[in-house]
Amino acid sequence: MNRENHTKNHEKLNAEEMVSRLYPFIVRVFDVYEVQNSGEALYFYGTPKTDAENVRGELWEPLQQFGFGCTLKYELGEHILLIYPEKKAKGKTWINLVLFIATFFTTMICGAWMFGVDIENAPLQLFRGLPFTLAIMAVLGSHEMAHYAMARYHGMKVSLPYFIPFPTFIGTMGAVIRYNGPVPSRKALFDVGIAGPLVGLIMSIAVTFIGLSLEVPAAKSLPNSLMFDLGLPPLFVFIQNLVGATGSNLHPVAFAGWVGMFVTLLNLLPAGQLDGGHILRAMLGKKADLISFLMPRILFVIGLYVIYWLKEDGVIWIFWALLLWIFAAAGHPSPLHDKVKLDKKRILLGIITFILGLLCFTLIPFNPIS
């Protein structure tokens, strides 16, 4: 037997072995009358026992275990279930590490400024911003790692967090993770969506308690620095009362807790691809589209109210309204198991989470001090 025939027989054996392993799962949702092997994929010809959405939903988990994906097509009067090996994308973790280190330093610079350090004249004092860095990185990092852990738990393909260094007043634009592939079910959509805000909020509360127990540094404002008067949300004020903290000035660590609460509020807005949009979509199904449609308009009205009625700075709400208007217009992709509703415990947890989000709301989050 020559090498070419040996290779062909080997591929045939692999294909037959693959069919025998996958066939029991396939026939549950698809009546097969013919199988073809193209060398790169298997073509199952037959009739679906349920709609296309359920076929993919039922097959997603067992196929993932063998490293395969599937597509259901209808061509020339025939239903074709295409099953193919999924290519494993190699993650470039060095990018995550570089961004993490860069964000570590940009947040430390901002933290040092909060302590009144003039970095240009005293660069060695940069380390004084370390408490703020540790606090803000813990708040933002725990949020994204909770998403990551829950996505992996449900078998989803997801990247490690990408921190975003940026010259804002906190030194970062937060962190994001990248999802590859479909969401298997409404349960997975809910669990992944809610994990980040809940864990991030718990970390924010812990950081706030720590920050409010620390003595506020007697720092002088640097020349040409922009100062803000913060609006404290009900949850933050509640913790202040528990700790017995007084005064309007905050320790940088407590400020990191405030940032965490504000980020939680923004993420829990029930619209588009925000965490709140994922949670509501999982809870209500396609009925959530109406709320996602209304949310940017509600924020826009809030912004106009703050600007023209209260004569305060409400630009943040106008900005977020326009942002959501763009991203919510595309709608929310459906999970594979979209017809399987959530259990009552998750519905209750979702309601509680949205209430916690409201406790992080303040009409005027910050006002520049002239």
Rank of each mutant, 00 (worst) to 15 (best):
Y23M: 15
Q64N: 13
V207L: 01
T172Q: 06
E215C: 08
P123N: 11
A52C: 00
E61S: 00
F293D: 07
N367H: 13
G200E: 08
L359V: 00
D191K: 04
V216M: 08
I239M: 01
V29H: 05
D343R: 14
G77E: 03
V263T: 06
S213W: 04
G285Q: 10
K341E: 11
V35L: 03
V35K: 04
H251D: 15
F115N: 15
L336Y: 14
Y179D: 03
I170N: 02
S213T: 14
E144V: 11
E11A: 03
G350S: 05
T246S: 13
K344L: 00
G260H: 13
H332Q: 13
E120H: 13
K187I: 13
T103Q: 09
N121P: 01
A188M: 07
L363R: 14
N2L: 08
L266W: 01
V306F: 01
E61V: 01
E215V: 04
E4H: 11
S159M: 07
A288N: 06
F327A: 10
T107V: 03
S204T: 00
P365D: 10
E215R: 08
N14Q: 13
Y153V: 12
D191M: 01
I95R: 07
D343N: 14
G331I: 11
A329Y: 13
S142D: 03
M173T: 10
K8I: 09
L226Y: 03
S334A: 15
S248D: 15
F236H: 01
T47D: 02
H143D: 06
E86L: 06
A329N: 11
P233M: 04
L348W: 15
P252T: 06
F190Y: 15
L324N: 05
I210T: 02
K345L: 11
P182D: 07
M261T: 06
L76D: 07
I239V: 07
Y308A: 12
V237N: 00
V263D: 05
T93D: 06
R128N: 09
W320A: 03
I318T: 07
Q36H: 12
I279A: 09
L342N: 11
E215A: 14
D313H: 05
F132C: 05
N9R: 13
V158D: 01
I298W: 11
L134V: 12
T133L: 10
F238S: 02
F68Y: 15
S225E: 15
A329D: 10
G91P: 10
T208I: 12
I326K: 15
Y23L: 14
G141Y: 01
A149M: 12
I318R: 02
P161F: 08
F104A: 14
G303T: 02
D275T: 06
S213G: 08
P48K: 00
L160N: 02
P182C: 06
K87C: 01
H278V: 13
H251F: 14
V158H: 02
M173D: 01
L126W: 00
V301T: 14
L97C: 15
I83D: 05
P24T: 04
Y148P: 05
I351Q: 01
C360I: 05
G69T: 00
V98A: 11
